[in-house]
């Protein structure tokens, strides 16, 4: 497939936003049960949620560039019964709204206590909103992944690994950002987020490698024979019926050499997983905010390459009909 930068930015940016929100909310819920020290509402929870929101909005803006007719985008919410894309279109604003409420609540100190149990456990309204937000965030990961995994003849994508990778890679980048952010605004949480960022990055590395391994040995179901219905082992296209190209030649091919594809693969493995792991480790050892920030920036750039490769690697069966001018 042709990798469209609008979709690459959409999926990577909302991934960071979702991951960061999950990280911030995990921080708050751990502090409620006193596993972590409580942090300042404004400086950490509030600001964190707002940064997450900025990433989500960034993704939304990127998605507009993908649509031919963005002014009709509201219509895309109507077919949620059958279309994962429609489900994503519904869940994304819900996530944004919940993250927004959560952020505002902390930032302006609007949080209310709902109940206090006898054991001294205080249930804040923000915890309920945050829990709903986290649920919505997971649902959004599922929708984003399923948009790709649901197209069964794009065999590189049609696997549960696609959904798992969207979940892990998004969460991973959010936790890396949370580590860097905590090193500035809540140093007590830095190690907690950092260790989780490392764990999720390793998990993501494993599942992404699994999908690379799976895709390298894929057996394509369609062939020239089934595409034409002609039973002959040697079939060659002599003409695709036009000379100047069409949507079919532009949208479905990556037009890059194998060497280029391979280099992108190694670049993304290095930049999304290996370098950030290293930088996270050094940053945590030295408590160095700049190194942690670098870990996030390198990882995000790596994710852009990763997403580019994700699209470029997928081989659409329609390409069988467009082999030669």
């Amino acid at each position: 497939m042709h990798p469209a930068f609008s979709v690459i930015f959409l999926t990577t940016l909302i991934g960071v936003g979702q991951g960061l929100f999950l990280a911030v909310f995990t921080g708050q819920s751990y502090s409620t049960v006193e596993l972590l020290p409580a942090e300042d509402s404004v400086r950490f929870y509030g600001t964190g949620a707002i940064i997450a929101l900025v990433f989500l909005i960034g993704g939304l803006i990127a998605s507009i560039f993908h649509l031919g007719r963005p002014e009709r985008a509201w219509r895309a919410a109507t077919r949620w019964r059958t279309s994962w894309l429609s489900r994503e279109v519904i869940i994304l604003p819900i996530v944004m709204l919940l993250v927004f409420i959560y952020g505002i609540m902390h930032y302006f100190n609007l949080d209310k206590v709902i109940t206090t149990s006898e054991t001294g456990f205080v249930l804040h309204l923000s915890l309920v909103i945050g829990a709903l937000g986290s649920l919505a965030t997971f649902a959004l990961f599922l929708c984003t992944g399923m948009i790709y995994a649901a197209i069964k003849f794009l065999q590189e994508w049609a696997s549960p690994l696609t959904v798992i990778n969207y979940l892990l890679l998004g969460t991973m980048s959010g936790f890396t950002l949370a580590t860097a952010f905590a090193s500035y605004s809540a140093p007590a949480l830095m190690n907690f987020f950092g260790i989780w960022a490392i764990i999720i990055t390793i998990a993501g590395f494993i599942t992404r490698s699994a999908s690379l391994f799976r895709n390298s040995r894929i057996k394509y179901k369609s062939s020239m024979q089934s595409a034409l219905g002609v039973r002959h082992s040697q079939i060659q296209q002599k003409s695709m019926g036009f000379m100047g190209g069409s949507v079919n030649t532009r949208d479905f091919f990556n037009h890059k050499t194998l060497l280029f594809l391979r280099s992108i693969k190694w670049i993304f493995i290095l930049m999304t997983f290996i370098m950030p792991l290293f930088l996270l480790w050094i940053g945590l050892e030295k408590s160095n905010s700049a190194t942690l920030m670098a870990a996030f920036l390198v990882q995000y750039t790596g994710l852009i390459a990763e997403r580019w490769f994700f699209f470029a690697q997928a081989n659409h069966p329609q390409n069988l009909y467009y082999q030669t001018v």
Binding site: M224, L228, V230, H232, Q234, I235, Q236, Q237, K238, S239, M240, G241, F242, Y321
Partner: peptide
């Protein structure tokens, strides 16, 4: 579209 193929 009309395309042309050659078998053999």
């Amino acid at each position: 579209r009309v395309q042309t193929y050659e078998a053999g």
